[in-house]
């Protein structure tokens, strides 16, 4: 796998994949796509990085505790957005009724909670997918009790 051509191409192509994934996430409410697809595309760029440069150098880019925090924080963020509506007097996970700004349909920054939720999901799926892959491909980790 440690091939020069693969490395050069990977280094060249990874930013484009990431930008494309981010685009899919951010435009999820305007065009096809959304958090799940975009997050996976972003993760696939890092998976390519793992394949080209090895899991260890990937770990330096995205340490395990960061990935773990993003995963759980994404889920907590989702619930927190939902809880906002409890304090606004509606039921859990409301959007317009909870007073999120709607904006102009078709713009990127519109649709209130949908934009936030999609972004949170995208981040979460991104780190989940990369963690799933690295955990599966890696040999037994030797890290004591941590």
């Amino acid at each position: 796998m440690r091939d020069l051509i693969v490395r050069v191409i990977a280094r060249f192509i990874i930013p484009f994949i990431q930008v494309y994934g981010l685009y899919i996430v951010l435009y999820g409410h305007v065009s096809p796509g959304g958090g799940f697809a975009g997050g996976t595309v972003m993760a696939s760029s890092l998976i390519l990085y793992v394949m080209a440069f090895g899991a260890r150098s990937e770990k330096r880019r995205l340490p395990e505790w960061v990935a773990r925090s993003i995963e759980s924080a994404g889920a907590v963020f989702f619930v927190a957005i939902g809880l906002v509506s409890l304090f606004q007097g509606t039921t859990f996970l409301a959007n317009q009724a909870a007073g999120f700004p709607m904006g102009i349909p078709g713009r990127v920054f519109s649709a209130g909670a949908i934009f936030l939720l999609t972004f949170g999901i995208g981040m979460k799926v991104f780190s989940t997918m990369i963690t799933l892959f690295t955990h599966l491909i890696e040999e037994e980790e030797k890290e004591g009790t941590g």
């Binding site: 999820g28 317009q96 519109s110």
Partner: peptide
């Protein structure tokens, strides 16, 4: 009008 999202699936 209810959600502000053009993509009905995302809505």
């Amino acid at each position: 009008e209810e959600t502000g999202a053009l993509n009905a699936v995302t809505a």
